[in-house]
Design a protein around this nucleic acid. Structure first.
Lengths: 365, 365
DNA sequence: TTGTATGCGTTATCAG
DNA sequence: CTGATAACGCATACAA
């Protein structure tokens, strides 16, 4: 039944006042070396540790960062979390992690509740369609900074660290096109998410710049998880004529697509090319290794945390929207489409053909 | 520059004393309906939320759980974390997550520091070789419960939730043996970790019960990560004669082994069988799909959190060591060894042959 | 049933 | 330089 040692006990042991103890700890005033040494010795020998609670109450600010994410179980997020933790740690800040499960209500309740811990700042990967921006402003207007990561909620004009989603998607799409694909499909994320929307935009604009038209049915909205990607891919792959390439807007959905293709006895990449987005660690082990757009998850988190720390330090300038670059990682899940493969012996990187579906009839799934 | 609303303001608004407000909130005393309603209304309209800090300070206990793990980036851990978060959430407890990076010093400092938050309980996946047991006892002796997950530190006799590591490893090993393998190798985790040790023991005892001897060089100690598993596999696969099957004691190392085999132009499972441990979500997408021992990560976390909650509720009985079962998931990375494959047309599950290497000479890598 | 007062462990202000 | 002392926001024992 041990009880934590307090400043009062240190003061008694060192035969000084409690105020003096505070002074040597915080160096808030010069203290005569003699006393100072006694205090330090007492702290050491008694294993004193200040109560973060009392400090927080008194200073009206803790060294806790709140972080709310959709789900740590989604393999893209651990890297982000680790990024913020690492830079937070160096500043001796700790983080309370909250999984909002893409549930706007749960998210809002977390965001609200975190205020009661007097957190020093809030990092959030917002859920779909949440009108959380107001809650977030409640923080900033109480001068505790908040920064959004990966995407922003409707109406948020504050700090955010994002990746070049449209660029990345366009990169992948252009690659598909250069490989000869003309019948491209896309499995988009939940379009209420800004990042999902941006990726779809990137895909579309790459198509447009190559003058390729797309059947509306070839854009499928899904849920950023494997199961949902699997079902979307199944729908896509059962269409006739079917697409020769699919861009899945995250790797989890791409994995689902891989699985769907396999079940339909379609070989990847011979029969169907598949590209993903995230370039998770695992993409190099999949069968086939997944071509995917890399986005720097760890950097995303680390950068956001650094920005937050700056704000905490009083660096108050206009809100920043930092954009981190993406990069296309070419692996084995993308190849030339079947017909082109048969027609030309060597890769024909030749002309940008008009992408009109050449008279192939189309029936809905 | 908003400032959070306090009980005092609620009291003023409802024209009652601060004590009365507290009473209606905590139902610590009957309050006349009239007043009660006024207070509730004030709370609602002003958006009052009690300060977790002040509460914690006063009650000397917060609703925060401390959780220290090696690294959230290791794909086995997110599930565990999620498990504890989910059960904690239902009891309106929040969790501070700490990545100790398998660094005993960092771990110890986290464990020590978490006390200053007056956490309600501590969940820990201990690092290798840390003499953290003492620090942990500091908690229990202050009557804040601590439970170890997945492994226990040296000398810890308190609560723990573990999986049947030895069983699982034996399961996988027996499967390898039944498939006809007689030259088995193992990539063990850091043997200072109890779970790594138990898995190795399971492997060894399965070998023993089949009367198979193993060359000491065929047991390689590695680090539970891909890179380390890769290097260990490389060492193993360059030995002559080389093993026909490898049990990697976690999936990350198995992925590394897969990669090593690929680089050495060895086909898996035709030339070399590989089994893992964890059965991560991704194992079904690898090339080939990885045979692996499933351990219930989410359940591990959830069970540990429930045990912790019980202790918090004063359920003080003898320390429990809960053991969760493991299960062998057979996929495609294990097949009959090359020679057996050639020799017999049909699977020969026949006799347990003496496992002596039949006069094959052995040279160190 | 309601109000008052005290203290949780700190920090910070202000005399001495 | 050092020591009292007053908050911080809340819970609770006790008084009214």
């Amino acid at each position: 039944m041990t009880t934590p040692v307090t400043m009062r006990q240190i003061a008694e042991r060192a035969r000084v006042s409690i105020g003096t103890v505070s002074h040597v700890i915080n160096e808030s005033a010069g203290v005569r070396p003699k006393l100072r040494e006694r205090v330090l010795e007492a702290i050491r020998s008694m294993g004193y540790q200040p109560s973060a609670l009392a400090q927080g109450l008194r200073k009206n600010r803790t060294n806790i960062l709140g972080m709310v994410i959709p789900d740590i179980t989604n393999p893209f997020f651990p890297g982000v979390v680790r990024g913020v933790e690492d830079v937070a740690y160096k500043r001796s800040m700790r983080v309370i992690l909250c999984n909002a499960d893409n549930d706007p209500a749960k998210e809002a309740s977390y965001v609200r509740e975190l205020r009661s811990y007097h957190i020093a700042g809030l990092l959030i990967i917002p859920a779909a369609g949440a009108d959380i921006a107001g809650h977030l402003r409640a923080y900033t207007s109480a001068s505790v900074p908040a920064v959004c990561i990966d995407r922003v909620p409707l109406g948020w004009k504050g700090d955010a660290v994002l990746v070049a989603n449209a660029d990345g998607a366009a990169l992948a799409t252009r690659h598909l096109i250069e490989m000869g694909h003309r019948h491209l499909a896309v499995i988009a994320g939940p379009l209420k998410l800004t990042n999902a929307e941006e990726r779809l935009n990137g895909f579309m604009s790459a198509l447009k710049e190559a003058h390729i038209k797309i059947d509306p049915e070839f854009v499928q909205e899904a849920q950023f998880n494997t199961e949902s990607g699997y079902r979307a891919a199944l729908r896509l792959l059962r269409m006739l004529p079917r697409p020769t390439a699919i861009l899945a807007c995250n790797d989890l959905m791409a994995f689902g697509a891989l699985q769907a293709a396999r079940e339909l006895k379609l070989r990847c990449p011979e029969d169907i090319s598949i590209a993903g987005f995230d370039s998770l660690e695992f993409t190099k082990f999949t069968d086939p290794a997944l071509t995917s757009v890399y986005q720097p998850g760890y950097q995303l988190g680390a950068t956001a945390a650094r920005l937050l720390l700056q704000r905490m330090d009083g660096m108050r300038s206009a809100p920043e929207q930092i954009l981190l670059p993406t990069e296309l990682m070419k692996r084995s899940s993308v190849a030339r489409p079947p017909d082109v493969q048969q027609r030309v012996g060597r890769p024909s990187r030749s002309s940008k053909v008009s992408g009109k579906p050449k008279g192939r009839s189309r029936s809905s799934q």
